[in-house]
Amino acid sequence: MSGQTASSSLVCETFTESDIEGAHALSLQFRWPHRSDDWRFAAAAAGHGYVVREGTTVVGTALCWPWGEHGATLGLVIVSADQQGRGIGRMLMERLLEALGTRMTVLHATEAGQPLYEKLGFTTIGLLHQHQSDSFVAPIVEPPPGERLRPLEPGDTPRLIELASRASGLDRSALVPPLLDVSQGVALVRGDTVLGFALLRPFGRGHAIGPVAVAADDGLHMQRAKALIANRLAANAGAFTRLDTPDEHGLGPWLESIGLARVDTVVKMSRNGAPAHDPGVLQFAIVNQALG
């Protein structure tokens, strides 16, 4: 698509690493918390997309991430405030959707973006709540009887990929390994079996917890999730921490009770079907709103 124009002064090209600083500056216009490193990680994590420039200035971005053969996520869709109304958002989205073809694709929509996504064939499948604070109280939450928490080990990676994939309904084999490289993680185990895990990593204004995935086939999933999250909160006590949790799992009231205020809610949408979640594993926190 390199060199094609949206108008006489706008040029749309493939997003490359050289666009990261311009994209970061664009996101700061809207007070998005993303650091340059967050953009760099997202672009490197099997992502590709497009950037729109006016002259040398980045005025629009949109990225997508194919996961396995059939799924994808889409995000970091931004159009400069002074360029809105020129069809940049629609053009970027159409380029991405053409590249993704018939893949089942998930995104998280702001109120402003939702009407465009609906016109492009996305339907609402849920809500996502953003919780954050630097003054939370990390509670002590014991795992279910017979289970314990321990640091992640190198041999855990295949099991973590399995749990993350089953919980999200997306193939996470290309995402979990690079996440582990930048995260401090903890596993919840019974004997030698990993039943859940949570990752804490630098993101935005401080750190983010996610993904958090736990086995849910015996009714103990909420206790497992709280034990894992409380452990990661304790590891980050006194520092800014963010967590994005799906509405349907009901974790929000507990997060608010320990001081992680809900600051935003976005709509989860999908196109060409919906993720095939395994009800035996639940995701209580996502990686982020772009990667899912």
Results as ranks from 00 to 15, higher is better:
G3C: 06
S8H: 14
S9L: 12
L10C: 10
V11F: 05
C12H: 09
F15V: 08
F15D: 03
T16S: 15
I20A: 09
G22A: 08
G22E: 04
A23N: 03
L26I: 01
S27Y: 00
L28G: 08
Q29S: 14
W32I: 10
D38W: 02
A44L: 12
A45Q: 10
A46I: 13
G47W: 04
G47L: 08
Y50D: 13
Y50R: 09
V52S: 03
V52K: 02
V58I: 04
V59Q: 02
T61D: 05
L63Y: 01
W65D: 07
W67I: 14
W67G: 10
W67L: 15
E69G: 14
H70Y: 08
T73H: 03
G75N: 03
L76E: 06
I78F: 06
I78T: 04
I78G: 01
V79H: 03
A81H: 10
A81I: 12
Q83V: 07
G85T: 05
G85L: 06
G87K: 06
M91F: 11
E94L: 09
L96D: 05
E98L: 15
E98K: 14
L100I: 03
T102H: 14
V106Y: 01
H108I: 11
A109C: 08
T110W: 02
G113T: 04
K119Y: 08
F122K: 02
G126V: 10
L127I: 10
L128M: 15
Q130Y: 15
H131D: 08
S133F: 02
S135K: 13
A138T: 07
A138S: 11
V141Y: 04
E142Q: 14
P145G: 11
L149G: 00
E153Y: 09
E153V: 13
E153W: 08
P158L: 06
E162W: 00
A164H: 04
S165G: 05
S165D: 05
R166S: 08
A167K: 00
S168V: 02
S168K: 01
S168E: 04
L170A: 08
D171Q: 09
S173V: 13
A174E: 13
A174S: 15
L175R: 05
V176P: 01
P177K: 09
L180C: 07
D181Q: 12
S183D: 06
V189H: 03
V189N: 06
R190Y: 12
D192Q: 13
T193Y: 09
F197H: 04
A198M: 07
L199E: 00
P202S: 05
G204R: 03
H207E: 10
A208W: 00
V214S: 01
V214R: 00
D218R: 11
G219Y: 01
M222T: 15
M222Q: 15
Q223T: 12
R224H: 02
A225H: 02
A225Y: 00
N231E: 09
A237K: 11
A237Q: 14
G238C: 07
G238F: 10
G238E: 11
T241R: 01
R242K: 14
D247V: 12
E248T: 14
P253I: 08
W254T: 10
S257M: 06
G259R: 04
L260E: 01
L260G: 03
D264W: 15
T265V: 15
V266K: 07
K268E: 15
N272G: 03
N272S: 10
P275Y: 07
A276F: 06
Q289C: 11
Q289N: 10
A290R: 01
G292H: 02
